[in-house]
Design a protein around this nucleic acid. Structure first.
Length: 895
RNA sequence: GCCGAAGUGGCGGAAUUGGCAGACGCGCCGGAUUCAAAAUCCGGUUCCUGUAACGGGAGUGAGGGUUCGAGUCCCUCCUUCGGCACCA
């Protein structure tokens, strides 16, 4: 009694694929290949809890695409690997004393076993882990490329893709050194200040609980760590930064040609946050005596008209950034960020204590406290005044924490009448409010508090100008006077790239030490042929609650060295963030065994870019932005031939628990794929995950749904296999028959629908079509063998184990993985006659059968001849008749 | 608050260019098979309403609009989910 036995079938075919290297993929295309296709999953972090049902969702989708395309003759690259550095393994190590390497590789074994159990057609010979020394050797190497690169924003060039660009990452050796930076050390420091990887002493997000610094992106809006939800505080620490902001414009514009959904592109655009405006200089002077200031102001203004707008404003000039230069006449006070260096120069003695106290309080505030919108605005007057360049009016300078040092120039001109935040501040501190924009709709809007575009008022010679025109004009006028210029700003910040943890890639860098063993601030890279810098073996890597990284207490022989020139060296002891390894893994998959280079240029040209990339939407910003950034640097340096790594991107929707909530241990609604497979088999799990609904949609799990697709697979099994026989043999109801017209039509309709649905990644509807096919053919007493074979082929990307088994039952001795995909014949789809509805005033009143190609006139005649229709329109005046061929007839009548 | 996505039966979800709303599956109801059950097979299943067969009406978050005809297009609003959050 061979019933559908998923367990037997699945292990049989998994062994077959392994033994026959069915999915081994060579880097040279097989003869007759119809082009290449690189299909990539976002590789998983191999956590201790194993695979959850969210993983197979995307993986099944890509697997279907790959299996389908192999049958279409494509040369398909489909690899899998592990994003295995990171905090959880290290936390586990701290808790249990097991080395993270052991935990990591044990977890990888579990993940690999689980993925193999699901029958994915990966080329396992390309497997890699970011923790492999052979892998992170190249991660370090790429870091050194970043370290060796500066961004020249004015460089014009044409890339290998034939596109002309302005701005390029160039070797640091090509950086022009200004005359003022003479001398070897000065030159090195100047270079260091321009590298894409640089050190910075800046306020960073320090998380005491995790013992590490976090990137802005890893801190939630609530000021907690993204991982673990621990409090995060601000500290000033030396850190490694990557100058991603240099690439902001290209990261923005080169999104346009990608085949990503607009909403994901929008997320990235918003994250980059480009804004256009102007920088404007306000004269402050070194005296708080307003009269003295005004006597100084005129000469300063005159000088500026001659020298133009300088790169640096000078100590006693306040430079602001504004997107609304047209509101300059409404600026009634200035605000600078508490950290702004000018505060030291301009604060008056009377205000000094208040200012210092305020700055002190702010410096200890967490980001949460600073950004809490509910709270009142705070700030302190510095005692100083700036002079409005357009009208010579002195206006007070305040410091307030609602202005951020890290955006624009760290200073603003406050226009309370036309900015909500400035208005709130002005009302709190009773500062004057001057309206300078008249709203177009005075019925509904008052000038004060109006932030839209309108017409200028109270702006002297500019009065009456519409906002847009005013902006352009005043920006030109300011530029002519050397007082301002057009400026662009990005919300995107440089990427904080160092972490104070053990389980990550070490930086391939040395710090030079002076005679006292103190770092001089100068660094030198580890030579490429000395890579990788491997992690030292350490027993104790628990953070000590201080920002000293665990590697700082590594053994001395790892930590120190003496250079050939006699300089004492100490290793960089920070490690790289988890993002590093995932930034370029898609490149290594194409050439994972190469020991000469991270990827062979010819191989790169062949496989890249990734044609389809599927993964969770949680990586819509960070991973994808970081990866694109690295890729562009490699592109500029000539190591890759395409400007973008991922041509098409699809984000699968999250799978919720049966109670419609996020799956989590605490909610007790986690579904374990192992359990599903042992009860129903991998094919059922795969099929169900695809049948649930559209790939990109969030959808709840339903165990009864798995039952449903399992029954469907059973029906397919019984349609082909003789269940009453002793062995697995073809049912005698399957015979060498010609298909009748109806069967022919159903078959070709199914092939067409399934093919098109796979192309659209609309797997749920593809499965429905196969169910309909099965419903039709199970009702026949005898079934044409050809139709059964075609169905098996259609089903094979979805339920590959069952399909292989049935393919064998149908008399084939070889895997169907490379069998040509079924083709449909459009002429088989046409029916001679169709049933169409007849509407009267838009309501369906009858149905008639008409020839498919009947013209409107003929359709109307057939309709009018029908008894049902006659009844409906009898005694009514026909105003109009609309007939759409093959669709419907509508009588518009008057009673 | 701003930006984005989405609201269709008891449930998951289908519906070319606007053209028979509810494909397919789950669940439920009825039947066959069985000593009985499981499994399987067949039929029914949007709601309301009258009925012998068979009708009638309403219906895609709410309200307007365009159209012979709207789940689909336009306007206003509501709800849910995702992202951002003093970015000047």
């Amino acid at each position: 009694m061979p019933r559908y036995d998923a367990r037997r079938i699945e292990s049989k075919w998994q062994s077959y694929w392994d033994d026959h290297h069915t999915f081994f993929t060579s880097n040279t295309p097989p003869e007759g290949a119809q082009g290449k296709l690189y299909v990539l999953d976002m590789f998983p972090y191999p956590s201790g809890s194993g695979l959850h049902v969210g993983h197979p969702e995307g993986y099944t989708a890509t697997d279907i695409v790959c299996r389908y395309n192999r049958m279409k003759g494509k040369h398909v690259l489909h690899p899998m690997g592990w994003d295995a550095f990171g905090l959880p393994a290290e936390q586990h190590a701290i808790n249990t004393g097991t080395h993270p390497r052991e935990t990591t590789y044990a977890n990888i074994d579990t993940f690999r076993r689980q993925l193999k159990m699901l029958g994915f057609s990966y080329d396992w010979s390309r497997e890699l882990s970011t923790t492999d020394e052979d892998y992170y050797r190249w991660t370090q190497w790429i870091f050194l490329q970043l370290y060796d690169t500066w961004y020249d924003p004015d460089f014009e060039w044409t890339g290998p893709d034939g596109v002309k660009r302005t701005g390029k990452g160039r070797p640091i050796s090509e950086l022009p050194i200004p005359q003022s930076e003479k001398g070897a050390e000065a030159t090195r420091r100047y270079q260091d200040a321009h590298r894409l990887a640089y050190q910075s002493e800046a306020p960073v997000n320090w998380c005491p609980a995790l013992g590490t610094v976090l990137a802005n992106e890893e801190v939630t809006a609530e000021g907690k760590s993204d991982r673990g939800d621990h409090p995060v505080e601000r500290r000033k620490l030396r850190q490694w930064m990557l100058r991603i902001t240099a690439y902001a414009e290209r990261l923005l514009t080169e999104l346009d040609d990608l085949d990503w959904t607009e909403s994901i592109k929008l997320l990235q655009r918003n994250w980059i946050g480009k804004s256009l405006g102007a920088e404007v200089d306000f004269y402050v002077g070194d005296s708080t005596d307003l009269e003295t200031q005004s006597t100084e102001f005129k000469p300063w203004q005159k000088a500026r008209a001659e020298i133009g707008f300088p790169d640096h404003p000078g100590d006693l000039v306040l430079r602001v950034y504004t997107t609304r230069p047209d509101t300059l006449y409404g600026a009634t006070y200035m605000v600078v960020a508490p950290e702004h260096p000018i505060v030291d120069h301009i604060t008056t003695n009377e205000q000094r204590v208040k200012v210092d106290t305020y700055r002190d309080i702010v410096s200890r505030k967490s980001d949460l406290d600073r950004t809490d919108l509910a709270k009142q605005k705070t700030g302190v007057f510095t005692g100083a005044h700036a002079i409005n360049p357009v009208n010579g009016q002195p206006i007070p300078i305040w410091i307030a924490d609602y202005v951020l040092m890290s955006y624009g120039t760290g200073a603003i001109m406050a226009v309370p009448a036309h900015d909500e935040r400035d208005l709130e501040f002005a009302r709190t501190f009773e500062l004057p409010i001057t309206a300078v924009v008249m709203p177009p709709d005075m019925e509904h809007d008052e000038p004060i508090g109006f932030v839209g575009e309108g017409t200028a008022i109270n702006s002297e010679q500019y009065n009456g100008l519409p906002t847009v025109e005013f902006k352009r004009k005043i920006t030109d006028d300011l530029a002519a006077g050397g007082l301002g210029k057009l400026a662009t700003n990005y919300r995107l910040r440089d990427w904080l790239f160092s972490r104070q943890r053990y389980w990550g890639e070490p930086f391939p860098l040395w710090h030079e030490l002076d005679a006292d063993g103190k770092p001089t601030g100068l660094t030198r890279p580890v030579a490429a042929d000395e890579l990788p810098v491997t992690l030292p073996d350490m027993e104790e890597f628990k953070p000590k609650g201080t920002p000293d990284p665990p590697l700082s207490w590594a053994p001395d022989e790892w930590l120190y060295a003496t250079a050939e020139d006699g300089t004492r060296l100490m290793r960089e002891t920070n490690s790289m963030p988890q993002w590093a390894g995932s930034c370029w893994y898609y490149l290594r998959f194409a050439d994972n065994k190469n020991s000469e280079t991270f990827i062979d240029p010819e191989v790169e040209k062949y496989w890249l870019p990734v044609d389809l990339y599927i993964g969770g939407a949680e990586h819509a910003v960070l991973h994808l932005l970081y990866s694109r950034f690295w890729h562009k640097v490699l592109f500029d340096r000539g190591y890759v031939s395409t400007p973008e790594p991922f041509q098409k991107l699809v984000n699968q929707g999250m799978i919720l628990g049966e109670n419609n909530e996020k799956m989590s241990k605490s909610r007790g609604n986690v579904v374990n794929p192992d359990d599903v497979v042992s009860q129903y088999g991998a094919d059922s799990l795969r099929l169900y995950e695809m049948f649930m609904g559209p790939l990109e949609q969030v959808k709840p799990w339903q165990m009864s749904g798995v039952e449903g697709v399992y029954r469907f697979l059973g029906r397919v099994w019984r349609m082909i296999v003789d269940e009453r026989a002793e062995d697995v043999t073809l049912s005698d109801t399957v015979q060498e028959l010609d298909l009748n017209d109806e069967q022919q039509r159903v078959l070709h309709k199914t092939i067409k629908a399934v093919t098109e649905d796979i192309e659209k990644l609309s797997f749920n509807t593809a499965i429905s079509r196969m169910m309909e096919f099965t419903n039709v053919f199970t009702q026949a007493n005898v079934r044409p063998k050809f139709a059964m074979e075609q169905l098996v082929l259609l089903l094979s990307p979805f339920a590959p184990h069952l399909a292989e088994e049935l393919w064998e039952v149908l008399g084939h001795s070889q895997t169907l993985a490379y069998n040509p995909w079924p083709e449909y014949d459009e002429s088989m789809l046409v029916e001679n006659e169709v049933e169409v509805p007849v509407q009267v005033n838009g309501k369906v009143r009858a149905k008639i059968r008409v020839p498919v190609d009947a013209n409107p006139q003929a359709m109307q005649e057939i309709a009018e001849a029908s008894e049902d229709v006659k009844q409906q329109i009898e005694g009514k005046q026909i105003v109009k008749v609309i007939a759409v061929p093959g669709r419907m007839v509508n009588f518009v009548v008057k009673v």
